[in-house]
Computed example of a mutant assay.
Amino acid sequence: MSARPRHSTTDDFPWWLVALVIIGLVLAVVIAVNDIYAQVFNIVIKGIGMTVFVTLVAFVLASLWGLAIAVLGMADNIMLRQGARFYIETVRGIPILVVLFYIAFVGAPVIVSLFNWMITPLVQAGWVDAMQVRDFSLTWRAILALTICYAAFIAEIFRAGIEAVDQGQVEAAKALGLNRVQRFRLVVFPQAIRTIFPPLSNDFVSMVKDSSLVSVLGVMDITQLGKVYAAGSFRFFETYSIVAYIYLILTLGLSLVLRRVEKSLRRSPRG
């Protein structure tokens, strides 16, 4: 069998990144010198705070919930395992947009009714007022929907990473007298994170893009501000070019940072 040819340093150079940087610089110049593009940019950029907020909160909650689902999926109890698998397969089979609408317009009233039922004694005593559906903001409904959807995918990432850990080390930890929580915290998770981090970082970048779906609920993120401006000015080309430009900067910058973190994890000594 012939040896696999080695790529030269020139072949490995990220020319794609150079091309994207050049395009980005050109668009930055256009924004600086063109009043229309500058106006669109100044309006749309106001939604970046909401986009970052929704992404960060939803991803943290989805990671915690996904880890819990993954642990339940590996439990000794068959009911817990089957329940976790049911959740994962069901949620992964439904489009995120459908879940978003369902949580916003079906789940939210149910959650509010359940909450009011739980605080009925406090309401009757006059200590608090009953919660109204309108008090459950659309932003948090969107965050809840993204959390539910992404947790199903993240649970599979955690499961694969945990199962990839050498069982011999787990048995050695048992022999040392470590309980299940200690084994997971000190032995399993530090090694599993090397397997988990790359796909988990990909999901984080994907959530930045999927956070644009919250615009269908009127949440004032980057996409929603672009939609409102385009509908009023009919500057669709300029508006959505700027929207795409901002998302590209966010996702590309985030991908490069996460790639550096991934390399540092690979170089770190194994526990």
Rank of each mutant, 00 (worst) to 15 (best):
L200C: 06
V181H: 12
A125G: 15
E156S: 00
R92N: 13
V165Q: 05
V44F: 11
M118D: 02
G218I: 08
L265S: 03
I246Q: 04
A62H: 07
E238S: 05
L178H: 04
S241F: 15
P121C: 05
A130Q: 04
A130Y: 10
R259P: 12
S137I: 09
L250V: 11
W65H: 13
I94D: 06
A28R: 11
G226I: 11
R159G: 03
I222K: 11
A84L: 07
V123P: 01
S201V: 00
A151Q: 02
M220L: 14
Y229A: 04
I69Y: 15
S206F: 07
D203I: 13
L97K: 05
E171P: 00
A58V: 00
Q124E: 14
A3I: 03
R6F: 05
A230W: 14
W117R: 13
G271K: 15
Y102N: 10
A142H: 11
F101K: 02
M118N: 12
S241Y: 15
L176S: 08
A19I: 15
I96K: 14
S201N: 04
A58W: 03
D129N: 14
I162Q: 00
D135L: 09
V216T: 09
Y150Q: 09
N179Q: 07
A244F: 08
P198E: 14
F234W: 08
D135W: 08
V91I: 14
F13L: 10
M50E: 07
P109M: 14
F204I: 00
Q39P: 02
L122D: 10
V219R: 01
S241L: 15
W16G: 15
V170I: 13
L72G: 10
R266M: 13
P269H: 02
F184H: 09
E262M: 00
E89S: 13
T90V: 11
Y102A: 15
N202V: 06
R6K: 11
V112G: 07
L254M: 09
Q82K: 15
L200R: 00
N42Y: 12
L97M: 10
A231Q: 02
F115R: 06
V110L: 13
K174P: 09
Y240M: 03
S63A: 07
P198T: 01
D76W: 12
